[in-house]
Amino acid sequence: MAARPDSEALIVGAGPVGLFSVFELGMAGVAARVADILPRAGGQCVELYPDKPIYDIPAIPEISGGALAERLLAQAAPFDPQFHFNEAAQTLSGDVENGFVVGFASGLEVAAKVVVVAAGGGLIAPKKPPLKELPAFEDKSVFFAVRDPELFNGQRIVVVGGGDSALDWAIELAPQAASLTLLHRREEFRAAAASVAKMRAMVEAGAMDFRLGQIRGLKGENGRLDAVVAAHGGETFEIAADACLMFFGLAGRIGPIADWGLKMKGPLIEVDTAAFETSRPGVFAIGDVCTYPGKLKLILSGFHEAALMARKAVRYVRPGEHHRFEHSTSSAILHEKLRR
């Protein structure tokens, strides 16, 4: 078995607040690892709104979610954070005296002296329609992502959605499919203009079908799909299908962190406002995942929370030492890192 990676701090969540925590912990002399369920850094900023402008980052009049994530990564880089992507945090054991171990769904375990939960809206995963028959078909004939396009060769495919993912896959899969129907609730698409034009041309040429409608149900047996049931303007209809791909975007949920024994308020973790520590000493929660009186779900609030968290975290990581507060302009630690 590979040695268990350990770290002074483990940050769960590589969104803007998780990334800034690397910087703040680094300034306090604490090295960090960062884990995220997503395949890259940036969290919601990158997954939900990479191109949407953000106007309330101090001193930056306007920046896109994607650009903000890039800058935060650059700001954290001197502290050389180790990232674990595609890792869903599952369990937390241990305590601040003996150290913590966070277990991940993949089997990975990371040991850390302090744990910082910066999980934002939680596990970001594809949205799934509320169809009671969905579980019987999911991952057999109904999919929310495409891992192996070859799987759909010669099949009758229904693609549901009107965004870039729906259009990109409809365009890519149509040539190899027995038939492909794009199902969307309106004539307008919020996808790249070039993709919309391509799709319309393919519909025109008979290379794919387009149906106006919203999904209502799935028909079939033993996970094998026969038809997708849809409705539009009060009329219900069926589209014969072997496979259905659905693209309704992404949404977050707190997930297994809710079972870490931390005091919760609904899906949020309660913290004190002096150090943003949870009910479990040595476990901190910052950013959108935490709550306290007056909490605002703003990126800038998360930055503030990260700074105060780091001051307390370093006292656990290096209990015997004297910890002096330093401004970044004169910080010896930062200047040494930047020189490298």
Partner: peptide, 18 residues
């Protein structure tokens, strides 16, 4: 007021439809 079923993942940015 923690009304169940209003998730508001994005916190009001009109970016999530929850």
């Amino acid at each position: 007021h923690m009304v169940p079923g209003i998730d508001a993942d994005c916190g009001g940015a009109c970016a999530c439809a929850t």
